[in-house]
Nucleic acid binder design. Structure first.
Lengths: 232, 232
DNA sequence: CCGGGTTTTCGCCTAACAAGCGAAAACGGG
DNA sequence: CCCGTTTTCGCTTGTTAGGCGAAAACCCGG
């Protein structure tokens, strides 16, 4: 018999850095420290429904472009007092929205977290690592970007999330070849210092999908060109 | 307030197919159906400690070469009666052991599961998918293989786990290039019908490690040859 | 309206890796 | 000692990531 809570590390790229949504605890334990949004699992909801419901108190749910389970945190003494088992989530918000936040809530760069409550910093690290990994072999970028964007802004998003500078040329090429990116046809107005107007792109699909080229030892499949189809 | 249980899909390649450890329920609910090993989370243990403890009743724990969290299953009605939230695990057993099993326990091919209890079949599917994915971009094969093996037997393991025939040549090449495989120097005795004796190999590391070549958009790093290190 | 500065986009090239194929190597058995 | 069998290795090909620089397309000031 244990209390079950759900917690989410909601990430967004803001002003060039990857940030996480935290709220400051008004009561003990860990009063004054920053913790992840979430709360107790209700009796008639599964964990994903629950975290979406609880996040609605912090941000508009419709602005959450992606939610996925991260892991269970269950060390016996992870919170003082009663035993609490937590299911942690990764949530993503696109860069073109700026949700109104409650008083006690604010964004913090994941690279410089404030004093955080309990084991919540470990959860944030895990969320960041998951995001970084999935940017490489999925179309998860759609959850960070707006509906339409230029390659330059997409480059800034990837650079901020990954923690290192990414080549815009290569980014466009790789995502295009994988069939994840498509041009809208129109262009964005050039910046104040001029320059060629950038073409607008969008992600072909806005749901998570994995690119399988990372799957090796593949069998020759009928849909792929089938480099040659004979097996011992 | 909900009961928390831990469940594990323990997989092993046996007689050429991927199989999962199940036990047959002697009591209602779902009497007679097959379910995953596991049980209630104890008050002083985290979920991984708990699943390892509970699996010890089924198989010798030292034979478990890999254990990882899969996901939380928490649909309100997933088991009748009291609310039960489950943390599901993937467990792997190398092919060269054959644990003694309790009466009610047996291996079943994941491709042809018997009538299984509750949502346990969904957990098994998820475990299978996770294994298949990780075989491609990690050294997880070490958990399926024995300490030493020939390329042919490794090929059979990968073929069984992935569900399609794998080229032995390519398997050895890819794993070697990634620095995961090394020859022991000795050879295995040839089969009854003769043939060149096969060289024995082992995995360099027996803990899980990810091969990053699947990470794209990488920065030029000092350790890698650094094709050329200049950035705009 | 023409040229300089700026930003984006595209083409060409290279490197790395997966993958297929066939020849050679290394055994046992008649 | 030749033959069938199994393994291993080298050669080659196709695909993808990645780097570099030129051309394209805009603004603005003279």
């Amino acid at each position: 018999m244990a209390v079950h809570e759900v917690l989410a590390a909601v990430l967004q790229v803001r002003s060039g850095s990857l940030q996480v949504l935290l709220w400051q605890r008004a009561l003990d334990p860990d009063k004054g420290r920053w913790s992840l949004p979430g709360g107790r699992l209700g009796p008639a909801e599964d964990v994903e429904t629950s975290i979406r419901r609880q996040l609605a108190e912090k941000v508009d749910v419709r602005q959450l472009t992606h939610v996925e389970q991260l892991a269970v945190f269950s060390a016996p003494g992870r919170v003082p007092g009663e035993r609490v088992v937590a299911t942690a989530f990764l949530g993503l918000v696109p860069c073109d929205v700026d949700p109104v936040l409650p008083e006690d809530t604010a964004w913090h760069p994941v690279a410089a977290l404030p004093e955080s409550a309990f084991d919540h910093d470990a959860i944030v690290q895990k969320a960041r690592d998951r995001l970084r990994a999935k940017l490489s072999y999925t179309n998860l970028g759609f959850a960070l970007a707006g509906r339409e964007f230029t390659v330059s802004t997409l480059r800034e998003l990837y650079s901020a999330a990954l923690g290192y500078r990414v080549s815009a040329t290569n980014l466009q090429r790789v995502l295009s070849r994988r069939g994840l990116l498509e041009p809208t046809g129109s262009t964005a107005p050039p910046g104040p210092s001029g320059g060629r107007p950038a073409a607008l792109f969008r992600f072909v699909a806005r749901g998570l999908q994995v690119t399988d080229p990372f799957a090796v030892f593949r069998p020759p499949s009928p849909d792929r060109p089938a480099r040659s189809a004979r097996w011992p």
